[in-house]
Design a protein around this nucleic acid. Structure first.
Length: 410
RNA sequence: GGGGAAAUUCCCGAGUGGCCAAAGGGGGCAGACUGUAAAUCUGUUGUCUCAGACUUCGAUGGUUCGAAUCCAUCUUUCCCCA
């Protein structure tokens, strides 16, 4: 058992948003190894940065000697969490959920140590899917008051838009998960994002009523910018942990570009740097704050994609932003000799590389002076790329100030 | 089960027969200024073979020289009553 109380660590790093019983939880975490759980619904084939935040919390807890349960919501995903959704989301198929669960499992193993029972992975499909409706209602359903459920914040927005009975049951299912984990593994605490507060309370209440035991809940701050917007979203969607969906280079760049105001918070939440260092970096004045951003981007990329990828991303960034160099790690498209011989129109090149989604967009970018080839502004839309643009078989197209793409001769 | 209302481009939201590729705002993208930041200002924001053409206003069919706008049917959603 580590001397440092996990609760204090999480508190100091700014994770904690709400706790059911602050003092008892702190005390409990200080005196024994506690089993706790966090649930993840497999609604996509990769974890996102939002999940990552809770995984970090899990890792901190594990380092302090506690035992995490990563609960995959194979059963709850069949229903869909209505929290924070304005519309009912589309139903996932059984196969889709199964596939996503596998992807989640692989990713968890990178951050949490599952050796020797130091952590447990469970899937609530194992118990939820075989429940009998009537007996479930009689055993569990009696303990829930519809009146109280309706007052829960998470249903409020849906009272206007409409809430199906299916989704209404989500809270009960999640509550039941907690009870089941308590019975199977002696799980005492449930953690989650702050949007999960009412679902967590439901579970803790249920355990108290059914088992007469104390169970606790704790939520973490949601990742938002200083302006209150959700972080981890880009124009092309979420930031994924899967390198196939968000390349390490793009990942690095995203964090390299966070607002000044958010750097310190991100360092505390999503790196393992000691807090003294976090505070030092966060308070660097003016232009120096860029040091903190570099550290943030590097550390995060390292945790998620490994040190090697982090180095590559950093080198690529430095080469490009530091003055023209070339690097292996930026996104690359290969083009054939023949194509090049004919002369590749800049508009086609932009679409091919994905820098522009359509030719219309490409045309606009060029017209507005947003495109350069090897640091030379493209002046006209009839510009073609020929072998003269290639040095050692490579050419770099830049869109705006920050998006680079490399062309490589096959 | 009965009655009422609505569905518009990424989002919100104008638009009731031609002047509508569709106001305005948000968001996005680009330019200027900068520190790969923020704020601000400017431009832009359906597709293409881009002085032109083509496809869009829940779906299908119809009226009309001409429809996002009118009619019919369908689908979905919301509200009121039971």
């Amino acid at each position: 058992m580590n001397k440092v109380n996990a609760f204090d660590v999480l508190k100091e790093r700014g994770f904690i948003q709400q706790v059911t019983h602050e003092e008892p939880v702190r005390e409990l975490l200080g005196k024994e190894s506690v089993t706790f759980y966090i649930g993840f619904d497999p609604t996509a084939d990769s974890l996102t940065i939002g999940h990552f935040l809770t995984v970090m919390a899990m890792a901190h807890m594990q380092r302090a000697g506690h035992r995490p349960i990563a609960l995959i919501g194979g059963g709850t995903a069949m229903v869909g969490d209505p929290t924070g959704k304005t519309d009912m989301r589309k139903m996932l198929t059984r196969e889709g959920i199964e596939h996503n669960s596998q992807c989640f499992k692989k990713q968890f193993e990178k951050f949490i140590d599952f050796e020797d029972g130091k952590a447990i992975m469970e899937d609530n499909a194992n118990w939820l899917l075989k429940l009998n409706y009537v007996s479930f209602l009689r055993e569990i359903g009696v303990h829930f008051s519809v009146n109280r459920m309706l007052t829960a914040e998470c249903f409020k927005s849906r009272m206007e838009k409409g809430l199906s009975f299916l989704e209404f049951n989500y809270m009960i299912m999640q509550g039941y998960d907690f009870l089941e984990l308590y019975r199977r593994h002696g799980c005492r605490i449930q953690l989650g994002g702050d949007d999960q507060w009412s679902n967590i309370l439901a579970g803790a209440d249920l355990i108290r009523r059914v088992e007469g035991a104390e169970a606790y809940g704790m939520t973490f701050t949601l990742l938002t910018t200083s302006e209150g917007k959700k972080m981890g979203k880009t124009e092309s969607g979420a930031i994924w942990l899967d390198p196939e969906k968000t390349s390490p280079y793009d990942f690095y760049q995203y964090w390299r570009n966070v607002d000044d105001a958010d750097v310190e918070k991100c360092l505390a939440l999503m790196t393992f740097l000691p807090m003294d260092e976090v505070r030092r970096l966060g308070s660097l004045p003016g232009e120096k704050i860029n040091e903190a951003k570099k550290a943030l981007a590097f550390e995060m990329t390292k945790i998620i994609h490994g040190e090697e990828e982090a180095m590559k991303a950093q080198k690529a960034a430095e080469a490009l932003f530091g003055g023209g160099g070339d690097s292996e790690s930026i996104p690359t498209t290969e083009i054939s000799q023949e194509l090049l011989a004919e002369g590749l129109n800049i508009l086609d090149a932009l679409v091919m590389t994905g820098l522009a989604p359509s030719k219309g967009e490409a045309r606009r970018l060029v017209t507005q002076g947003g495109i350069t080839v090897n640091e030379q502004k493209v002046e006209a839309i009839d510009r073609t790329i020929t072998d003269k643009d290639f040095e050692e078989g490579k050419a770099i197209i830049k869109k705006g100030k920050k998006s680079y793409h490399r062309l490589k001769v096959q």
